[in-house]
Amino acid sequence: MLTEELLIVTNNPRVKEMTDFRHCWVEGECREVIMQAYNFVAQGHQLISHPLAGSIKPNQNPYKSILISRLSGEVDIAALKLAENCLRKAEELMENKIPIDLNVAYGQDLQLVDQDLLLNALQSIQEGR
């Protein structure tokens, strides 16, 4: 896929700086990003990266970036269900939120890990175009 065919749903400031890409900026935490991606998928956008990519749980890393297609078409029911299940899991885990001081270097690390998962997804789909 081409860069211009992609949309990154994100709340990660580090990802926002990737100016070659189109973003849907989300104010909020991991759950809100997944919710936004879920809404896009419901409107027929393709879900490209798994909403729960990475093994760091939604209550441990507030930053989340999810890759979807910019254009919408037929709704992919399987992807919508997947997104819904991810949303549910994220909500369940968010009930036990782990307090994180994002003002220390720690927040940067969390942003970096989220971005790296995204970069790997981007690399995979761009090699495949």
Partner: peptide
């Protein structure tokens, strides 16, 4: 309005 959502929510 969004039938697919209705389908996924069962």
């Amino acid at each position: 309005t969004v039938v697919p959502i209705s389908l996924t929510v069962g």
